[in-house]
Amino acid sequence: MRSIAAFIIGTLFLGACSQQENLTDQLHNVVEKYHNTGFYNGTMLIADSTGTLLKEAYGMADFDANKPLDVTSTFYMASVSKQFTAMAIMLLKEDGGLTFDDTLSTYFPSFPSWANSVTIRNLLTHTSGIPDYYGLGVAVPGFTNSDVVKVVERIDSLNFAPGGQYEYSNTAYVLLSSIVQQISGKGFNQFMQENVFEPTGMTSTVAYDEKMPERTNPCKGFDADGKEDDYQYFTTGGGGLYSNIEDMYKWHQALQSYQLVSQATMEEAYRPMILNDGSKSWYGFGWNIDEDNPKSVRHNGTLTSFRTYIERNLESGQVIIMLNNVGKTKRDELLTEIKALMSTSQADH
């Protein structure tokens, strides 16, 4: 009887391994198809509760130097950085350094009177009404957080009453980063290293602020014509992070296990914002929330030629991490095919 039981268990195990290997092959083939046709140049990590299904690099880190990508290559993360800024705020909240209902004027008394009605929660959820500085046409190479603050000081009025609607604002997240620096008395990269990156083992991730920390194995950005189109700013909060797929997977695992903040605080990050009229905005603290499946959260990033993406299922633990350094990409189409394969595999189980 023991032999029969062992045989059945072994057969089931081999069957599961075979299914996983088949899915890995299918995922690799679809990414390679996009790479071979010139529409994906980057790294990719896909995992579920059983572990990593795909971890591969496709293409070049630097076309001019003929340097290939590998799985440790670090990319400019663009707006995927916002979830890290939100985590810094949540850490300070749990430590008693601030509350989500603190007003912006508490930290920036030089701002116009409208800052009395904007809360940290508004900044986190893009419901502040503060214009995006990219839309104001003021961003230039070398732009810093201090430059953004000077721009905000000159804003006479908000685009709408705080909490009135959702409107994406990189300005809001730069201000959040500046608040972290004010409260902690540390540079943003130093705070993140000590409180987020080191505790989670993210050894290749840095916030590229005014001090320009050394980047590990960086890749360059290239536009659709093959010309260098690299990141040139020094703002943190809305962007500014460099990371790779290995570190981003560690980040996902840390969030799933509530390693950094409590479950209650994390659940608040994944909760839609209730607007002034009682309707919901499906953006939490640095995460887009799927209205049809609130257990699915995601964020993309786009600046210069970098295209980044992370999608996590809070219930199943499934994660898709896509980092691309060429402007000519079909990220959304590729993502659709990946998710179709994952869905079919789950249905077969």
Results as ranks from 00 to 15, higher is better:
Q20A: 15
A254V: 10
W287D: 12
M60K: 09
E167R: 11
Q259W: 01
S178F: 02
R271G: 13
L53D: 08
E291R: 04
Q263G: 10
A57Y: 01
C17R: 15
D223L: 00
I310L: 11
S81R: 12
S18C: 15
E153W: 06
L124R: 09
M266E: 14
S257T: 14
I245H: 05
N195P: 03
L275P: 12
N195E: 02
W287I: 10
H126E: 03
G164W: 08
F222I: 11
I274K: 15
I155T: 12
K82C: 07
Y309H: 12
N122L: 07
V206H: 01
G15S: 14
V297D: 06
L323H: 08
G59P: 13
D102T: 06
F75Q: 08
Y173D: 07
Q26P: 13
S305Q: 02
I46E: 03
A47M: 02
P109N: 07
L23C: 06
D223A: 05
Y270C: 14
L98G: 00
N300C: 08
G187S: 04
G317D: 12
M90L: 04
T344A: 10
R298P: 07
N288T: 13
S169W: 03
V319E: 03
D64H: 00
T302C: 07
V30W: 06
V71N: 13
R215N: 00
K93C: 05
Q346M: 03
V152L: 05
G135S: 06
A6T: 15
V297R: 03
T37Q: 14
V326Y: 08
A6W: 14
Q26G: 09
D48R: 01
Y173E: 06
Q256P: 05
N159K: 15
F7I: 15
G317I: 07
H299M: 09
M90H: 03
E311C: 08
P218L: 00
S157F: 11
K93V: 12
T99Y: 03
D348S: 12
S279N: 15
W287N: 08
F100L: 15
L104D: 06
L335I: 01
V138N: 08
F111N: 00
V152H: 02
G201A: 02
A78E: 02
Q256S: 12
D332R: 01
F143D: 05
G96I: 00
A347H: 00
M77Q: 15
D102F: 04
T99A: 04
G42A: 13
D132G: 07
L176T: 09
L27E: 07
T302I: 06
W282R: 11
T205L: 02
S343C: 02
C17A: 15
E194T: 09
K250H: 10
G38Y: 04
Q256V: 03
Y40R: 05
F39C: 12
E198I: 07
Q190Y: 02
T74V: 02
G97C: 00
F13K: 14
H299Q: 11
R331Y: 05
S79T: 09
T43G: 03
G286M: 10
G221R: 05
H299L: 05
L53Y: 06
T74A: 05
